[in-house]
Design a protein around this nucleic acid. Structure first.
Lengths: 234, 234
DNA sequence: GCTTCTTCTCAGAAATCTCACAGGTTCCTG
DNA sequence: CAGGAACCTGTGAGATTTCTGAGAAGAAGC
């Protein structure tokens, strides 16, 4: 994972649930972003002034005003930073329509942190703040095309479900690194996943099967820790 | 989606509803245009003087004078920019008819942003401000002619309704890419569409049927994500 | 004003996913 | 080498997603 050391991008996270803010802020800091937070519309607007974020992660439901109001007051039209709105899953969709065609985007809660990061990088790339890169992740003979949402091994297409895809993508973003179970669960599953952590084993098993039993086993078990994507020693 | 970097065209958006202006301005900026806005006729005329837009998106209903009045006053001076009028759906259309014979055009609210952008590019092309390009989108044996508004599959004409056409056009603009449900709804449906997102499934079903069940299925389901236009795996 | 076309909602069926569970296997440690 | 811990993977139930036909409401055309 590449971490920008020189000049980290500033991101403002606005949500009135401290738990959510914490978990998002933590994840983004780990990704090398500079993060500030606010718990309501007023302080969000103040924070934009003071902190000059390049991007805002903004909950739609705030105690004092809704997220769209915040966006309007920031002068959505004029040089304001792009916004990723967070909405409840069952929220009415009419107000968020049309956001993705503008510079903005939105996600429904709960989401996986990987996805939030992916969208943030997407927007930063679109706005020219981050260097564009190919959207194909590669490791050995494994390829994952993020645009087409397609995976191939040795040129052969591999059909993955959505969870399998997210899991493999996380491995490909962190090649050769031993990832702990908790890391993986935190990043790939939704942040409020409360189920049995052993799903992970099941999904690793699915992936191994689908990626082919013949070729070398790319997803290796690191006993007592978790898993790592790496080529086996010959 | 091509973004003009070198010398962006200037577009003035005039509407008294801030929400509308915001969403249009955002979308056009994202497309690489330079955008200014005005909320009434007076400031619109002033803005034309100061900003020298190459095109105006002008609401017909303004607080101080109607859009035609604005157009008339601007027209007095020669070489006024072409105008796209925005009218309410239930407005009398007689006044707007005949506009398309000049350089102007009109759209009824609400509209899809894709369509507004398409019309803007059309006008800029007609007035020689934007490089002409082929208006035929092609993917495999599928062809969509934007001028003639005609679609053929393997040479056979396919009769599409307007929504089906917009949907297919969006797929053809983003071949091989996995498009999320939200993306598609945002781009193809009107900006205030708040209905059931399952229309999309219905329309995909229509398209698949009309494009022929025999040939390979070009619109593929990407489970948990949305759809993609791509040749099926052999 | 009547007919036809279009758009959208709805609902049931089919397809597919996710996750928990449990028995078996592998690995480590003493 | 025994015992225990960690891990693997098949099975299946319940939930979710997707497909498609039918029909209501509205718009457009005649």
């Amino acid at each position: 994972m590449s971490v920008t050391v020189a000049d980290p991008h500033r991101i403002l996270v606005v949500d009135d649930e401290p738990n959510i803010v914490d978990v998002i802020a933590m994840a983004l800091r780990f990704q090398g972003f500079a993060v500030e937070s606010a718990a309501d519309g007023q302080s969000a607007i103040a924070a934009v002034d003071a902190f000059r974020p390049q991007l805002i992660v903004l909950d739609v439901m705030l105690p004092d005003m809704d997220g769209f109001e915040v966006a309007r007051r920031l002068g959505a039209a004029n040089g304001a930073p792009p916004i990723i709105f967070l909405t409840a899953r069952d929220a009415p969709e009419d107000k968020v329509r049309g956001l993705t065609i503008g510079g903005d985007d939105y996600m429904t809660k709960p989401f996986s942190l990987e996805e939030l990061v992916a969208r943030i990088r997407n927007i930063l790339r679109r706005t020219g703040l981050e260097a564009p890169h190919s959207n194909v992740l590669v490791f050995e003979d494994l390829q994952l095309d993020e645009d087409a949402h397609e995976v191939t091994r040795a040129g052969e297409p591999v059909e993955l479900t959505s969870t399998e895809y997210r899991l493999l993508r996380y491995f490909l973003l962190n090649p050769r690194r031993a990832l702990t179970r908790d890391q993986i669960l935190d990043h790939v599953w939704e942040y409020d996943f409360g189920g049995d952590g052993r799903v992970l084993e099941t999904y690793v098993s699915y992936l191994r099967k689908k990626l082919g039993r013949e070729g070398p086993q790319l997803i290796q078990t690191v006993r007592g820790v978790g898993y790592a994507l790496r080529a086996p020693r010959p």
